[in-house]
Amino acid sequence: MAHDASKLAVLIDADNAQPSLAEGLLAEVAKYGTAHVKRAYGDWTSPQLRGWKDQLLTQSIQPIQQFGYTSGKNATDSAMIIDAMDLLYTNRFDGFCIVSSDSDFTRLAGRIRESGLFVYGFGERKTPTPFVAACDKFVYTDVLREADESPEKTDDAPHRKTTQELRQDSRLLNLLREALGAAADDTGWAGLGAVGSMVSKRAPEFDSRNYGYAKLSGLIGAIGLFDTEERQVGNGKHIYVRSHGKK
């Protein structure tokens, strides 16, 4: 199914997400499908969630009230999980977007994937590895920025890594080389899109923006260890890649 035809449910843990990222978040979600459900969970009587008010109205996000019945216990997580399962059983959706940095949603992500649906996770860098790994794709929220945000507001965005820094990242190089090896034809060339898909399957959190590059082609070019060429395929042009020295 094409991404833009996918029906998605977006569930936001407002206790663990910043309202300033709401616009960028939904713009990112739109790359993967259409958000048919947009809900944000939290205790809306709490002053800590006051910043969400404008975003709820502007982005048409439905607030779901969940009182904190007991100190130290997060009732919001339970409410999100129950709602997610209710939505899952309707068989109306192709995927879920879980917005939280909380490991409590690890089993939920796994359960949704067991039903054959796609799971997109969104969270901060502190998000525990088990939750990241449980998603089909995980996007770190520091790469999401509002379209009209000025440059001075993006100081916390990932800086663009240099060629030297990229070449010293052994995990990144191994991911790319293994993906290229799996996707390449007999001549050693592989479509860049296929390489990106293979990398994402092995590392859900992989995103060229984590390294300061808007697209995978830019990241590949900056590393300088791969050959690339543009080919005319049908009515469009596609980028192909291979390791240096391949014949």
Rank of each mutant, 00 (worst) to 15 (best):
H3M: 10
K7T: 09
V10M: 10
D13F: 12
D13W: 11
A14L: 06
N16S: 09
Q18F: 01
S20V: 09
G24M: 07
L25A: 09
A27E: 13
A27W: 00
E28H: 02
E28Y: 01
V29N: 00
A30D: 14
K31N: 15
K31E: 11
T34M: 05
H36G: 07
R39M: 14
R39K: 15
A40E: 02
Y41T: 00
G42R: 01
T45G: 10
P47Q: 14
R50D: 13
R50V: 12
K53M: 11
L56Y: 11
S60C: 07
I61Y: 04
P63D: 07
Q65T: 07
F67D: 05
Y69A: 14
Y69N: 12
K73S: 05
A75M: 04
T76H: 07
D77G: 09
S78P: 00
A79M: 12
A79L: 07
M80T: 00
I81F: 11
I81L: 11
D83G: 11
L87M: 15
L88D: 13
T90D: 05
T90N: 06
R92H: 13
R92T: 14
F93K: 08
D94C: 10
D94P: 02
C97G: 02
C97D: 09
I98H: 01
V99W: 04
S101T: 08
R107S: 13
G110N: 14
R111T: 14
R113C: 11
S115T: 09
G116Y: 02
G116W: 02
G116E: 08
L117S: 04
L117C: 11
F118C: 04
Y120D: 00
G121H: 06
F122N: 01
G123C: 06
E124C: 08
T129C: 01
A134F: 06
C135F: 11
V139S: 13
T141K: 00
V143C: 12
L144S: 10
R145W: 05
R145C: 08
D148M: 05
E152F: 13
K153T: 04
K153S: 14
A157L: 05
P158M: 08
T162I: 04
T162F: 03
E165C: 09
R167D: 05
R167T: 09
D169C: 07
S170I: 04
L172R: 01
L173E: 03
N174L: 08
N174K: 13
L175D: 14
L175R: 12
L175Q: 15
R177K: 12
L180E: 02
A182I: 07
D185E: 13
A190L: 03
G191Q: 14
A194S: 15
G196C: 12
M198D: 12
V199W: 05
V199H: 08
V199R: 10
R202P: 00
A203I: 00
F206K: 03
D207I: 08
S208G: 10
R209G: 08
Y211D: 11
A214M: 10
L216C: 09
L216S: 07
L225R: 12
T228F: 01
G234Y: 03
N235G: 15
N235V: 03
G236K: 15
I239C: 09
I239P: 00
R242T: 07
S243C: 10
S243I: 13
S243A: 15
K246L: 09
